[in-house]
Write a protein that binds this DNA or RNA. Structure first.
Lengths: 249, 249
DNA sequence: GGCGGCGTTCCACTCAGCGGTACGCTCTTT
DNA sequence: AAAGAGCGTACCGCTGAGTGGAACGCCGCC
């Protein structure tokens, strides 16, 4: 899978063997997932423990707090998170629904923050997790402001159908993207998860042409009307955009 | 400084060369901080870029989004964060002051979350950042529930004086710790930063003897009365504690 | 009591990694 | 303009860190 011919490659293969859902993996499982020789995996994992990227428990290995800490040193994501927090708070307080902040990475969204209360709609998104661009509200606004090339790259590739409502027709999706640029918001209606609705707005760079991130509000079908939160989401996104512009000349 | 005799050690030396404040470091600076040979540093950094842990810009290297993502896969911190979020939200909404969630790592607190509004008190804490145990409210509650050995280890070591109000007398500090266990909250009054007050409560494991994390509310001298938020902080912490107990038997 | 899967240890081979050296570039400085 | 300092990049022969196959002891399960 990965090029694990170098030591570093092996180490990363082990670290990346942990999926979003795994908490602790035994050595044998690491060997299976990485394809490394047992002896090698054992030693490299041991080194990683020594360097505080892995914790060793009775039942196997686990990604450690040191890695968590290191990850939060990533400058762009961290400052984005810090600058965004007040706006996300405002948005949450106004809506009391799940609020997301996400950036684009390749053909997917990576969620930088997810905040919600006790009664939040169950959604598959997780902080630090990924979702496809084409079936999420944030994904759509990010895609709408991506370069023409990247846009067509996504649209021409086969679009994964997540639910019966997932938009997999490139034409319809492109129309939604155009609409997103015109109105400043994009919607998702049970396209990634049944029972989940979502509105998102783009956080634009000073040039007004590229999207740095996206902010969304998500809620369950029934009580939740995404349209009624469009203004709030747009306000939060543009507010964050201009704050970023002020600090990053 | 670090044992960088192995490849992995060198790679980590480079990654950890990034302080909390650095966003982009040129190769020469990495060489200076790590003490690696220029050729070696260049190659290892290149490998790290290839493995998406570093980004290369015109002005140097930067910790990448891939690292951010990987860090958020760390199971314990991530689930703690996710389970805690609703309680932190409640707390913020009730107080409208800066809310922290922190865990202990060695003799320091690591902040897992920091949420606040636009008018938050300026504090040195950052998400993913560290602070000494003895001069922060969360640090005190965590230390109060640490093992006897660890407690004395911290108390006997010289305590860094951060401000004129920092408690550096081991006796006084120990009394504060005892008081924290009795009352369920600890305070910090301008002990880490001038103008900053703080209340914290411990998130206890089911056994009621060990602290998993700490929650705090911080605000500026003047308008902010830490005592008046003691109950709210305690409620959030115990609420989170029992929720964690339910999910982690 | 035999069997399969697990974590751990050992060891001789070899190629990945090493770091000194050298080059070209862009800024300052004189 | 010339000289210099500091930077990023590229090259290359030596060597020991890293490799992975094999072997061992340990459970828990049929």
């Amino acid at each position: 899978m990965e090029d694990s011919d170098t030591v570093l490659g092996k180490a990363l293969a082990i670290l990346r063997a942990f999926g979003p859902a795994d908490s602790v993996l035994p050595l044998a499982e690491l060997v299976r997932r990485t394809g490394l020789a047992k002896g090698t995996a054992h030693r490299v994992a041991g080194d990683l423990v020594h360097h505080r990227l892995l914790d060793k428990t009775d039942h196997g290995y686990r990604l450690s707090g040191g890695l968590f800490e290191l990850g939060l040193r990533a400058a762009t994501e961290r400052t984005l998170l810090e600058m965004a927090m007040p706006f996300l708070q405002d948005l949450y307080e106004r809506t009391h629904e799940t609020v997301h902040l996400g950036v684009r990475e390749g053909h997917e969204v990576v969620y930088v923050a997810k905040i919600g209360g006790h009664r939040q709609a169950s959604s598959p998104s997780r902080t630090g997790g990924r979702m496809p661009l084409h079936c999420t509200a944030i994904g759509k606004v990010l895609l709408a402001y991506a370069s023409e090339d990247e846009q067509t790259a996504v649209l021409t590739a086969p679009l994964e159908r997540r639910t019966a409502h997932t938009v997999i027709a490139p034409g319809l999706l492109r129309r939604q993207l155009v609409n997103a640029v015109e109105t400043g918001v994009a919607y998702e209606r049970e396209e990634s998860t049944l029972g989940l609705l979502c509105v998102a707005a783009p956080v634009l760079a000073p040039d007004g042409l590229t999207a740095i991130a996206g902010i969304s509000v998500a809620g369950p079908t029934g009580r939740f009307r995404p349209e009624s939160h469009a203004n709030a989401v747009r306000a939060a996104a543009t507010g964050l955009g201009s704050t970023l512009a002020r600090r990053r000349p």
